[in-house]
């Protein structure tokens, strides 16, 4: 058993700036999508990142996965700076850190069957497995995420949004990663499906010993699933605290405003 307080991933002074295209004769401004962000991810926790649109929360996910090139700062994996990684080490890192996206249909290739979508990561990292071993693993995963076997040869457009999101989760988990980044995983789903996916993520978290980074604009979802929360505004972290602390006594005015803006489902007596 690993040390519970072990630090898996640390992000130091991460910045992502890019010039705003301001037209031919205007001076260009710099947009600070992510500005001097630092945080640590501890083994086994669920870290929530909450913020409104344009706060840079999705950019942070993409920066961690090196899908976009950072302006400056340091991302470390078990204390080792990712910048110093060789191609092979980078590939190992990618195997260990996986992502699921918001749009359940957009994140699946429409021309591929569910089976081959889930299989893709196995082909990349576990090419030595036989066809049958791979298939066994795929069916195992489909079972774990609650997809019935007969969806194996189906195509994404034949599935519901919730089922597609489950396919995305199965693909992310098939190589047994240690970190799963969830970028607004339930925002596009209906309320009852949201609850199912959140339950599933919680179950899989303990089953696969996952550490989660959970990005959402929805405070109720964050509250339901996260241990710690970063509140982001315009690329800057304004609070980084335990979930209960944050919701029970928010310090920053912006956090207070966010929390009080959530409409309550309990109607006033009229």
């Amino acid at each position: 058993m690993k040390d519970k307080s072990e630090e898996i991933l640390s992000v130091d002074n991460l910045k992502l700036y890019y010039p705003e295209s301001a037209g031919l004769f205007k001076s260009s401004n710099t947009i600070k999508a992510v500005d001097d962000v630092s945080f640590k991810l501890i083994n086994g926790e669920t870290l929530g990142i909450v913020g409104e649109s344009g706060s840079g929360k999705s950019s942070i996910c993409r920066l961690i996965l090196s899908l976009v090139v950072k302006t400056s700062g340091k991302i470390s994996w078990f204390g080792n700076d990712l910048d110093g990684y060789t191609k092979k080490e980078m590939k190992d890192f990618r195997k260990k850190v996986q992502i699921i996206f918001q749009d359940p249909y957009g994140s699946l290739d429409p021309r591929m069957t569910i089976g081959s979508i889930i299989k893709e990561p196995l082909d990349i990292f576990n090419g030595q497995l036989s066809k049958q071993e791979k298939e066994e693993k795929i069916f195992q995963l489909m079972n774990d995420v609650g997809l019935s076997n007969d969806l194996f040869n189906r195509y994404p457009h034949e599935l519901s949004g919730g089922q597609c999101q489950r396919v995305g989760i199965a693909r992310a988990l098939i190589n047994e990663p240690s970190v799963l980044i969830c970028d607004e995983p339930v925002s596009a789903l209906d309320l009852s499906i949201q609850a199912q996916i959140l339950d599933l993520l919680n179950d899989l978290k303990s089953k696969y010993n996952l550490t989660l980074i959970f990005v959402s604009h929805d405070l109720s979802v964050i509250k339901a699933i996260c241990d710690k929360v970063l509140v982001l505004k315009h690329g800057i972290i304004i609070e980084n605290r335990n979930t209960d602390d944050l919701f029970n006594n928010p310090k920053d005015d912006y956090t207070k405003k966010l929390i009080s803006s959530v409409p309550s489902p309990i109607p006033l007596a009229k």
């Binding site: 993409r62 996965l65 899908l67 980078m90 590939k91 990618r94 195997k95 850190v97 996986q98 992502i99 996206f101 918001q102 749009d103 957009g106 994140s107 699946l108 290739d109 591929m112 893709e120 990561p121 990349i124 990292f125 995305g168 693909r171």
Partner: peptide
Amino acid sequence: KEFIETSKALGQSNTLIIVK
């Protein structure tokens, strides 16, 4: 599209992303 980003995040090679 997100499915291309997912493939990149998986570490799929560029050639295979184009072909597949």
